[in-house]
């Protein structure tokens, strides 16, 4: 997929690349081409977030985790050759695939944030599950589409996190 894109992928090529028989591919993925592509995309997404977790897992608090997470994820995304190529040339193929695995990604980020929220001073009325759900969705939205935020700039990421993301969720120490 990295070399030839999603559209041109065939089971024969996958088998040749992996050094196995075509029948082996179908035994592992009975759904054929469609299932192979789905599994490969899911695998790439899981790898992306595993790497991201290694980048930022040692962040001391939620605000730092999100700030570093946005900057690191954006950098990883922009330098992700296979994804950038797919978005350029076959967005109609890759975007629905990513949309399919998105619920699992949201679940994963939400679980991580829920455990982080347990160690924070929450603002009155905040329900941890709801806050984690909203933050996970916004975090993922910002990674894919930063809009007018320049996430190469740690100061911008800091303003974004302490404002739009966390102002309603946790009691933050005054800046400075």
């Amino acid at each position: 997929m990295e070399r030839d894109g999603l559209g041109a992928l065939t089971v024969e090529e996958v088998a040749r690349e992996a050094g196995v028989a075509r029948a082996t591919v179908y035994r592992t993925f009975p759904g054929g081409r469609d299932e192979v592509v789905g599994a490969a995309v899911a695998h790439a997404v899981a790898g992306f977030f595993a790497d991201l977790r290694r980048d930022i897992g040692d962040a001391p608090d939620l605000a730092t985790l999100l700030e570093r997470g946005l900057v690191a994820a954006r950098r990883r995304l922009e330098s992700h050759a296979a994804l950038q190529r797919a978005l350029q040339e076959e967005a109609g193929q890759i975007v629905p695939r990513l949309a399919t695995v998105m619920p699992l990604v949201i679940d994963g980020v939400r679980a991580e944030l829920t455990s982080r929220l347990a160690r924070e001073r929450l603002r009155p009325g905040v329900v941890p599950d709801q806050a984690a759900d909203l933050l996970a969705r916004l975090f993922l939205s910002l990674i894919g589409s930063p809009g007018s935020w320049d996430l190469d700039d740690p100061d911008a990421a800091r303003r974004l996190v302490r404002g739009q993301l966390l102002a309603g969720v946790v009691e933050l120490d005054p800046p400075g």
Binding site: R123, Q130, G163, G168, V169, P175
Partner: peptide, 23 residues
Amino acid sequence: RRLVRTYLVPALTSPSVSEPSLS
């Protein structure tokens, strides 16, 4: 309304949304 009141209004009116000079 709970979503808006608890999370979004503070998010949009927090001083740190703007540049630090306006905080």
